[in-house]
Design a protein around this nucleic acid. Structure first.
Length: 759
DNA sequence: CAGTGAGCGAGCTTCCGCTTGACTT
């Protein structure tokens, strides 16, 4: 006895704190929550005040046993989980599960992991805040009730194994709504006029553009005509000072966005790499919604910047978190040691660390000072002036280390420098063009821009952004993919040497990479839920219940009354829907096959979305699966008919017919019983016999290389993850350090035996 | 693993948020 036990949530944190506290203190980790509602059952007694039934999670039994043993050995147990709703609940669950005596239990919290912060926390312990715990229980129970009552309705009404929830269903809705905005979008065209001018007595050119958009061809042409023989000159020059301020240091969400834009990382990639950096002690905690930096970090940044760039570049700033529902249990994401400009690690780790380092340093640097010059070029009888702009960096400030990226693909062009021009100076037009432009349709979400949107709506938490995205993809509600751009014609008029010429040009528009597309089942589920549970699909639903949770947290509302108010109506609707005996049959009649005269109908079948040729009672009706990216709600007759062209006979190879089609794993060619994937470049509708044969032979060559050795029933093969051993249907890993070529029958059998025994 | 779409029925699926490993053919 006499020992102190401190329990935190993360093992990496435990290690650091143990060093600060030294002798007499043991620091252990709970690895997050240790108890939860039953995994399979509802776990909430809805007829008895919504009493929750908690169970120790299977993977936490060991942790709980260890913590109990430690607690029994200690005279004081310090519950040091995070100081937010979830953290408070973890502390309470610990005190309940470990059966801690209140006289030997202390609740403490610190926002930064520094020795002084921890010692200060130890000096001012408090009791567990039951209001905050109850707010968490309300959150947990509401999510359980919504998830476990809505999902079974979908199993019955739409398809088994589907899921619905407060967060995921709204995330899907965002994507479905956007998909429909895109489908409904009609681009309108206008003309933009730009000109290059040569100032009199100078050699350089000045580029200017007309602010007004001309709504049609005749207006644009009329304007160009007015420019013929016009005497242009500088009407005014204005110079303005401007400043640019650095953005706040990273939160989980902004890190995910910038890592996607600058490094091309997916949301989950960013989190995995950040986790490794955190565990290596290189950065602070990566799941946070706070932009706050510790005083220690502020001091270190100031010292580093002053030493490295000079005092003029230092500007200590404290950022305030604006995000709805932010709980601020941690610091912003920053390097643990500001002076570590680079780290050891793999390429991804180095890049992500560097990004975090730059953003943190920049946030503590001075504003950039700019000088913006705007020159107006006009002429008599020309109705609109040309505006030329330039920008000069007078003092780079934070721009020395970091420039934030934007999602806007059509980012403003780089502004050049303005030559020495004066008011009244004659400007000779070199060329003036009127280009037809189009309004741009809404952009599909990327993983990162979806996270940004969810954060703005206050939906989801830093720890759930990445898992939410993988859930909605796993359910086939949405798919991450690319879309090829399509050609679009546009007109240009060019005024040069006093003559106007017209030219029709083509551009490729709508090319998209790594975007989230709505899938058929996502659309159907969203429509069903919006129709029957509109309040939950409402973008403001989370914000509304969060207000209630806040009221519970400050003691103004009672948690199970809040739940009851919600549940009574909700559950009634659930009951009504379960009993209404309808099944959602979403189908769309696309049109009629001009050859057979049969109807084409798109719907969901047992194996996914399909097109059916012929009515349901037609004994000769045919089926074809929809390709990835084709939607029931907007597939065209032409596209649908094309689906029935497959499988298509391409030719023959070694006396066997080659056919081409699209299967579960994409387009393929087949000869005999062998399949070869067509990859992304070849189309099964158009692949030629020569292409197919070339592919087949290439594939055969690869297959022959796949085989390393055979020992009786054992094979050594080259696989996706390198060489492995195969016996019958089972695969076995080759131990590290063993070369696949060096294996013989005996060593293979040893490996197999070892693997079988350890299972 | 490259097609499929009868009908019945037992048994299963599912939420959000807090945390790491274990494991991959």
């Amino acid at each position: 006895m006499g020992e102190n036990l401190v329990i935190v949530e993360s093992p990496a944190k435990a290690k650091t704190i143990e060093k600060f506290l030294g002798k007499g203190f043991t620091v252990k980790s709970s690895f997050g929550h240790i108890r939860d509602l039953s995994k399979k059952k509802l776990g909430v007694d809805t007829s008895n005040g919504f009493a929750p039934n908690y169970e120790i999670s299977a993977d936490k039994k060991k942790v709980v046993a260890e913590l109990t043993a430690e607690a029994n050995k200690s005279s004081i147990v310090w519950l040091a989980s995070d100081e937010d709703r979830e953290g408070e609940a973890i502390a309470w669950h610990l005190s309940e599960t470990l059966k801690l005596d209140s006289s030997k239990t202390r609740r403490i919290a610190f926002h930064e992991i520094t020795k002084s912060a921890i010692l200060a926390a130890i000096d001012s312990p408090r009791d567990i805040d039951m209001n905050l715990v109850n707010a968490q229980q309300a959150r947990r129970i509401l999510d359980r009730l919504v998830g476990f009552e809505l999902s079974p309705i979908l199993w019955k009404k739409v398809q088994p194994k589907l899921s619905a929830g407060r967060v995921q269903s709204v995330a899907v809705r965002l994507i479905v709504d956007r998909e429909r905005e895109i489908a409904a979008f009609k681009a309108t065209s206008f003309y933009k006029v730009e000109g290059s001018f040569i100032p009199e007595k100078l050699k350089s050119t000045v580029k200017g553009s007309v602010a007004k958009k001309f709504s049609d061809e005749s207006q644009a042409k009329a304007f160009l005509e007015s420019c013929i023989d016009a005497d242009f000159s500088i009407a005014s020059i204005e110079t303005k000072d401007a400043t640019r301020t650095p953005t706040a240091p990273f939160t989980t969400s902004s890190l995910q966005q910038e890592a996607a834009r600058k490094l091309g990382f997916s949301v989950s990639q960013t989190m995995t790499i950040a986790q490794r950096l955190y565990e290596a002690g290189l950065i602070t905690y990566m799941r946070t919604d706070s932009v706050n930096l510790s005083s220690l970090a502020l001091g270190a940044a100031k010292e580093f910047i002053t030493k490295e760039y000079g005092a003029a570049y230092s500007h200590t700033r404290n950022y305030k978190t604006k995000t709805k529902g932010a709980q601020e249990a941690h610091e912003a994401i920053r390097p643990t040691y500001i002076s570590n400009t680079t780290i050891e690690g793999n390429a991804g780790e180095k890049k992500l660390y560097s990004l975090i380092w730059k953003r943190t340093i920049a946030s503590q640097m001075a504003d950039a000072k700019l000088e913006k010059t705007t020159a107006t070029i006009s002429a008599a009888n020309v109705s609109e002036p040309f505006i030329a702009e330039s920008e000069k960096v007078v003092f780079d400030g934070f721009l020395k280390v970091y420039i934030e990226s934007t999602d806007d693909e059509l980012d403003a062009e780089e502004l050049g420098l303005m030559p020495a021009i004066k008011v009244g100076q004659k400007m000779n037009p070199k060329v003036i063009t009127a280009t037809e432009k189009f309004t741009s349709r809404p952009a599909r979400y990327t993983e990162a821009s979806l996270v940004k949107k969810l954060e703005e709506l206050g939906i989801g938490r830093p720890s759930t952004y990445a898992p939410t995205i993988s859930t909605i993809m796993k359910r086939d509600y949405v798919i991450k993919g690319d879309k090829k751009g399509e050609p679009r014609n546009f007109n240009t008029f060019t005024l040069k040497a006093g003559k106007i010429s017209e030219e029709a040009k083509t551009e490729i528009v709508g090319n998209e990479k790594g975007k989230l597309f709505a899938e058929n089942i996502g659309i159907i589920v969203t429509d069903y839920l919006s129709e029957n549970f509109d309040s939950i699909l409402d973008y403001g639903f989370t914000a509304k219940v969060e207000e209630d949770f806040d009221q519970i947290a400050c003691g103004n509302k009672v948690w199970n009354e809040v739940i009851r108010d919600f549940y009574t109506d909700f559950h009634q609707t659930v009951e009504d829907k379960l009993n209404d005996r309808t099944h959602t049959h979403v189908e769309r009649r696309i049109g009629v096959d001009p050859v057979s005269g049969k109807a084409l109908i798109a719907r969901i079948g047992r194996f996914g979305p399909l097109v059916q040729k012929g009515e349901n009672d037609d004994p000769d009706k045919q089926f074809a699966s929809l390709a990835k990216g084709q939607l029931i709600e907007n597939i065209t007759l032409e596209e649908a008919l094309k689906l029935f062209e497959l499988p298509r006979i391409v030719g023959s190879y070694q006396g066997q017919t080659i056919t081409a089609s699209i299967g579960r794993f994409g387009p393929y060619v087949k000869y005999g019983s062998s399949f070869v994937s067509l990859g992304k470049t070849l189309d099964p509708h158009s692949v030629t016999e020569e292409e197919a044969i070339a592919l087949i032979e290439e594939h055969k060559l690869k297959e022959s290389k796949k085989h390393i050795a055979t020992f009786g029933d054992i094979e050594v093969l080259n696989g996706r993850f390198g060489p492995y051993i195969k016996q019958g249907k089972n695969n076995y890993k080759i131990p590290k350090g063993t070369a696949a070529e060096s294996l013989n029958e005996e060593s293979c059998r040893e490996i197999i035996e070892k693997a079988t025994n350890t299972k």
